[in-house]
Design a protein around this nucleic acid. Sequence first.
DNA 1: GTCTATACATCGATAGAC
DNA 2: GTCTATCGATGTATAGAC
Lengths: 191, 191
Amino acid sequence: MYTARMSTQDRLIESTRELLWERGYVGTSPKAILERAGVGQGSMYHHFQGKPDLALAAIRRTAEELRASAQRALDGPGTPYERIRAYLERERDVLRGCPVGRLTMDPDVVANDELRAPVDETIGWLRERLARIVEEGQEQGQFARSLDAREIAATVLATVQGGYVLARASGSPAAFDSGVRGLLSLLRPAS
Amino acid sequence: MYTARMSTQDRLIESTRELLWERGYVGTSPKAILERAGVGQGSMYHHFQGKPDLALAAIRRTAEELRASAQRALDGPGTPYERIRAYLERERDVLRGCPVGRLTMDPDVVANDELRAPVDETIGWLRERLARIVEEGQEQGQFARSLDAREIAATVLATVQGGYVLARASGSPAAFDSGVRGLLSLLRPAS
DNA sequence: GTCTATACATCGATAGAC
DNA sequence: GTCTATCGATGTATAGAC
């Protein structure tokens, strides 16, 4: 299932990441994790204290990867508008949803401050990065000064997260793309 | 738990609706439903074929109520912009999330066309209603003709659905409100 | 470190008494 | 119609051999 060079710990974390993305925390059982990782029960409880501990490791790694991926789009070339567009249009497995945002619908994640923390930090980080780019656009005269940069950042993030909801409801990525295009048309500089 | 006048069937549907909202389909067990409804196992399997059948009845009722509630805001008084604002700002239990949109993160709901149908229909209906209002705004010169009404409708819906994600990630409704205010500032007519 | 065996509760459903 | 009893499978965790 994974490369032979991957340690048992890593295989457990990777299979947990996949299952959390596909089925969420509540829908992911230790048994399913073990089967996907191809290891026995004992290995999991040797390396991790239990399901929450393993999930925390998986969530942290997923959050890290998402930040790195988003940063590549946000720090790319172009004007502030173009960088926001690059973020909105970057390659996404739309129907799978956001591996981080999805966790906010998991009651056991939201109820556990330790599990929720990486989710909150990732979204907070993204929002600050986006807000800074909006401010740059305002300084360059690309966006109206009347806009509140942190509010626009929240709108951009919400459009992405909500786009996944629309897409999954209809079973097609088209609604996600529509929401993004609508937002871009509202943001587009007059020039 | 519910009024004495409520039938056993209704009590089962109501407790299922609550649990689906709080914990999703995967996280809701027949046992929990029965305990909340205060009825025995037999009653549930007498009135419903099983968990999916009961969930379907609950989802349909929730979808109906959401449509009725949204319609009140969308058909209210005021300009198209004001009616969209009324929809975006209407009373919401933000941290609980959307009882319909939430279901799109449930793997067993998305995988079952019958369970997904009411979700898809509700969101599709909302999108068409919003698009029509945007068109009215365009006809009245309130919104730019260059905008695509169905895209803007998707953006509005996505902002709401994604706003719940942001709020639940941070544990505070503030981020939802920010996203909505950001969107309204982008939509606001120049006049 | 990894495995199998075991434990005990819960899951979703059925049987059958009343 | 409603209840309790029961079922086989799964969920999460522990014990202990190798």
